[in-house]
Write a protein that binds this DNA or RNA. Structure first.
Lengths: 353, 353
DNA sequence: CGCCGCACGTTATACGTAACACTACTGCCC
DNA sequence: GGGCAGTAGTGTTACGTATAACGTGCGGCG
């Protein structure tokens, strides 16, 4: 419990405090406004004497000077602001992407503004109007397809996340090696003896999900007795719940493993399995993808693939900074990590037909 | 799969497009720049003829004119930007608060910039520098205590979330009626016969958590045989895991119910219970708080209190708008909802000593 | 001696917008 | 006919910053 030391007679209101400008600092330090700008911009070497420079800094500190960023942006033509376009922020994955991006941005003295695409925030608005300042660049997840269309025509650097590296509209791309993750999940399941695998595939038209299907197909190509099916699933616990029900009660032999495009889906699938009287992992193996906090909260803990979300955001921002500085950004592909936990087990003997 | 209709010969790069200004529009429409400003600012009634107004709008559309927000902010002294200070964004709760705030802000043509306090983004920076533009107001969660200190001195409207309504430093406060939620959880548990209840209390020094403890104490005051203990817990699955272990293996009779300050903690507690051979809810009842997606993913689903996070963000932004328009904002307290699911059950007969 | 850098500054300008102050014309009533 | 209100505009300025352009002494060098 903190003490309230200040009496604070009136609550802070709308009263616009007369902002202290660089001219005020100049007056206080006895120099010109230009000198203040030079000193505080650290461009004073050989232009202002060390003594005066110090007194400028002292005056600025004294008065609590804070440069007006609107004026600076106007003058410079640069806003030091990037837009991050995400499909919806209520997911842990994108919250982590934001965190990584914001960290790197702060190192470059940049800010990050979010544009959660329409489903999160209402009818489609102009993403550039929603950002309050003009923007220096855009980082966008491929999953925010609708908002993306508006970006295409702009003359801004556009870094695409989780997106086709050959996309000609992107200045740079940052990808997770999802294909490798899925291959390793598939190998893990095959190694446990699973052959009848149903893919609970995200019902989202985005590159990163297409890759998952392709990688799974590729991984099972050389296995003659493998029998893979696909069931579309909405990206939520309920989505997994329904998709798993369809997969487990449909015609034909029951799959012994469910490979889910997302941890949420996997959690839902586990619930359905239990309701149908199937034990996970003894009767049915389930794998997730993302390694959300949730994957360790459910019982059993999910075998999944850890996606380094913060690194995705960080790499995206690095790529954007490179583009802004004229360095050609290289496409990035980040490694993922297979995390084996309790939701997968050898195929039950009874199912080995 | 979308077709790539545009040939797009060169990738968009750093090439700064010569932005089209209001003067360009004026030239194209054959009027003065001032007229353009009037028309596009919708202040032209009786000052510009309807005919010319229309041709200005046409020219703006034609040229793809987008006003320079930096210039506008500089001129107006207002940035139409609010800062949202949150303790960490990787949590679903604050992602939802942001979404609600951003929705309301958009209605007022405002933007929202996030300041995740230091633990999320590195060493403590100046929150106002991190926001790229000057700010018109601040909305802050009481949980971001460290960042908050910096706000106190500023002359900006400050809306506090989940915070003491009597805080003299706040322009307005928005609260959830957490006390009511906890009272209802307590009543629910008492109704099921529970008397030995351990409170897994968040180890965070914030008003919203103090309220929980106080409300629980109050609810049990009139119950003579009630026996409540408290165990501090970090706000995570692991935190709940450890705290529950301490609570269930400590000296004295084992509690029959755990009241947890957060769904994550509750999920962890359930795991510990299961590891100790206790069934939830038959042998032990567990309640959460938040109603995260996670609370429906675990087995059994958590009895919890639904916190309307988006409404908190929305109400916070409404209060800020009111303050900026000179209307005195009233303190807000939002109702919460008890959600009874599978993690609570009548106290087992054996435990009824 | 004259003139070139060099260190140390200042003056002036432009960024794009909003809005104040002003002009000019047209009815129209007293 | 003079003033007055209303309509339809334009010219100009200021917001606060960064920087190009412009002095001004002064020591040194040809």
């Amino acid at each position: 419990m903190t003490a309230h030391e200040q009496p604070s007679p009136a609550r802070p209101g709308t009263a616009a405090a007369p902002r202290v400008t660089s001219r005020d600092v100049a007056r206080a330090a006895g120099v010109s406004q230009a000198a203040v700008s030079l000193v505080l911009g650290d461009k004073w070497r050989g232009r202002v004497s060390p003594h005066k420079a110090e007194s400028v800094r002292a005056a600025a500190r004294e008065l609590g000077y804070r440069p007006n960023l609107a004026a600076r942006s106007l003058r410079m033509g640069r806003t030091r602001t990037a837009l991050l376009v995400v499909p919806a922020l209520t997911t842990e994955y994108f919250a982590r992407v934001y965190t990584g991006a914001a960290r790197v941005a702060a190192d470059h003295d940049f800010g990050v503004v979010l544009y959660p695409s329409p489903e999160g925030i209402g009818p489609a608005r102009d993403p550039f109007a929603s950002a309050r300042a003009a923007l220096d660049g855009v980082i966008a997840s491929s999953m925010a397809a609708d908002a993306l269309a508006a970006m295409r025509g702009e003359e801004l650097p556009l870094v695409m996340l989780d997106s086709d590296p050959d996309d000609p509209g992107a200045t740079a791309t940052v990808n997770l090696d999802i294909a490798d993750g899925v291959r390793r999940l598939a190998a893990h399941l095959l190694g446990l003896g699973h052959r009848r695998i149903t893919h609970l595939a995200a019902a989202v038209d985005s590159w990163t999900f297409h890759v998952r299907s392709a990688a799974l197909a590729e991984a099972l190509r050389g296995v003659p007795d493998a029998e893979v099916r696909t069931e579309p699933a909405a990206l939520s616990v309920d989505g997994g719940l329904h998709a798993a029900h369809a997969a487990l009660t449909g015609p034909g032999p029951r799959p012994t493993a469910l490979l889910c495009d997302d941890d949420l889906v996997a959690a839902g699938a586990c619930k359905t399995a239990r309701r149908l009287g199937l034990r996970v992992p003894e009767d049915l193996s389930v794998t997730g993808l993302d390694d959300l906090a949730l994957s360790r909260a459910v019982e059993p803990e999910l075998t999944t693939v850890r996606l380094p979300a913060e690194e995705v955001g960080a790499a995206g921002m690095h790529a954007l900074m490179a583009a802004l500085e004229g360095r050609p950004p290289a496409p990035v592909s980040l490694p993922v990590e297979l995390v084996v936990r309790g939701s997968t087990a050898p195929v039950p003997p009874a199912a080995q037909v």
